[in-house]
Computed example of a mutant assay.
Amino acid sequence: MYGSAAHNIYAQNNVEVESPAKLIEMLYEGVLRFNAQAKKAVKDKDIEKKVYWINRSIAIITELISILDLKQGKVSKYLEGLYNYEIQLLSQANVHNDITKIDEVSNVFKGLSDAWRETNNVAH
């Protein structure tokens, strides 16, 4: 279900990933970290850093979309729509310096991360 493209991102950065499940967890955590940095940049009125961190979050979400296996059914299609909506929210946050939209995306990814971790702990 998870292509090698996401793994290559981490391999290029010399980050060792034990499993595809761990990689997804790391990607979710990356969105949360980058959103926190973007939120700080908005508060600091640092436009350059805001754009940088929001673009990093969007890049991760785009990668999450690219590794979805849409043949897996409803969950994959739901996630594709959800991820695209989160990109829209981050784009709006970028244009309007809207921390509430960054928080909304972070809340969604916190929930996804928790659910992912719980699902994969049960599976092992």
Rank of each mutant, 00 (worst) to 15 (best):
L90H: 00
Y52N: 01
I24P: 03
V108Y: 10
E18C: 05
A6C: 05
K110P: 04
A41F: 00
I65D: 06
Y28R: 12
S66N: 14
A115P: 06
Q72T: 10
R56P: 07
I9A: 08
L32K: 11
I54P: 04
E18M: 07
K71V: 03
S4G: 11
G73K: 12
P20V: 12
A11K: 10
Q12W: 07
A41E: 01
A115K: 15
K50G: 03
K22Y: 05
R33A: 14
V17A: 04
A11T: 12
D98Y: 06
L112T: 02
S4L: 14
T119H: 09
N121W: 02
N84A: 13
E104W: 05
E18K: 14
E18N: 13
W116E: 05
L64V: 00
Q72S: 12
F109M: 08
I87E: 04
E118V: 03
V17M: 05
I47A: 14
D103E: 15
V31R: 04
L32E: 08
Y78P: 03
E25P: 06
I99Y: 13
D46Y: 04
I60V: 13
L112R: 07
S113V: 05
N55Q: 05
K110A: 08
N8H: 10
L23D: 02
T119I: 09
S76A: 13
I67R: 07
N55R: 04
M1E: 09
K77N: 13
Q12Y: 10
I102M: 09
L27C: 04
A6E: 00
N107D: 13
S91N: 09
Q88Y: 12
S91C: 09
S106V: 06
I60P: 09
L89W: 04
I54F: 03
N120K: 11
N55K: 04
E48T: 02
K71Q: 15
E29W: 03
D69P: 03
N107W: 07
N97G: 08
V108C: 13
L23M: 10
D69Q: 06
D114F: 10
D103N: 14
A6N: 07
L27T: 00
W116V: 03
E80M: 09
G3K: 14
K22G: 04
A11V: 09
